[in-house]
Nucleic acid binder design. Structure first.
Lengths: 166, 166
DNA sequence: CCGTCAATGTTTGAGATCCAACAGTTGGAG
DNA sequence: CTCCAACTGTTGGATCTCAAACATTGACGG
């Protein structure tokens, strides 16, 4: 078949395959389902962020964790779990890694010996600053797509979906 | 599950912890990042869908696969991979499962013996019909949150994010 | 024809994620 | 005070996902 576009990006989000010399794929009801597009958009965003940052160990999830710890010094793992939307058991391994790399401090709470209190180290703050810079660039790109005037509305809708969907 | 703790919902997406009797969590820059909210919204949608369907083997990903096969009979795994946004190696296992359960037929392409042609079985069509019904109910809930007048615009933005973010 | 390069689907390895079960800790009801 | 239910973080099992390496097959130039 038309062998034209050989050297292409390793990853394409082109569901219909249109403008690729291939017969377009029909989405059917999927085309109107918010959930389907939500997933594609989220994954595209995830990939773009990861690619911009470079370090394969610092994915959006880690960035969110570092930010939340920075903004809420002494937060417990359970609270961090709720805020970041990850199960607490997922955080155990992720925090092990962040502590191991010297970005996060896990200290026993003297008052409640069940919980840990989380803090950033100096190095953690430096890494976070760099990540935040990258994240800002990344989000700027998203802003351009959404349009600065529509951004607030867009964010509000996403937040409502996350909150009211149970 | 019904007999145990009757108080709290099993899953809460309440990042700030506000109105829960807990000190609210500060999101910092995260509050304005589209990617963060995209992820929370997507995961809430995913969970709500899975819960509505019941069958733990029929997640949104499977639903998308069945729909795409139904809408494009004879589609190859690679094309399905692109359309559904999953790696082809991910589809191998998923299709093994769907074939095993008698929902999908994988037949060798006589013309190109590298590829398979995918079709739904009668049972596959029945299951898909049921799933589509559930998905419609689910999406109706999303529609109510987004607002019917804003839906088109919202879908367009999500699609553009998925397409233009590389 | 034949050799090379591209495409298809599979296998393998790594990582993220969830849930259920668990042990240690806390706090409140008797 | 004692006991039990709730909470904290961890462990183990399962699933989903991607990327890279692979064998098979196809397409095409020489």
């Amino acid at each position: 078949m038309a062998g034209g576009k050989a050297a292409r990006a390793p990853r394409e989000d082109n569901p219909t395959g249109a403008a690729r010399g291939e017969p377009p794929v029909r989405l059917g009801p999927l085309a109107d389902f918010i959930g389907f597009h939500l997933r594609l958009a989220q994954e595209a965003s995830f990939r773009a962020f990861a690619q911009r940052v470079g370090d394969p160990k610092l994915k959006p999830s880690r960035f969110a964790m570092l930010t939340l710890i920075h903004e809420n010094p002494g937060i417990t793992q359970t609270a961090l779990s709720r805020a970041s939307g990850r199960d607490k058991s997922t955080l155990t391994a992720a925090l092990d890694d962040l502590v191991q790399r010297g970005l996060v401090l896990r200290e026993k709470d003297a008052g409640d010996r069940r919980s840990y209190r989380l803090h950033l180290t100096a190095k953690g703050r430096r890494v976070l600053a760099r990540l935040t810079e990258k994240a800002r660039e990344h989000d700027l790109k998203l802003d351009r797509i959404v349009g600065p005037d529509r951004k607030r509305e867009f964010l509000r809708l996403l937040a409502r979906i996350a909150t009211e969907l149970e």
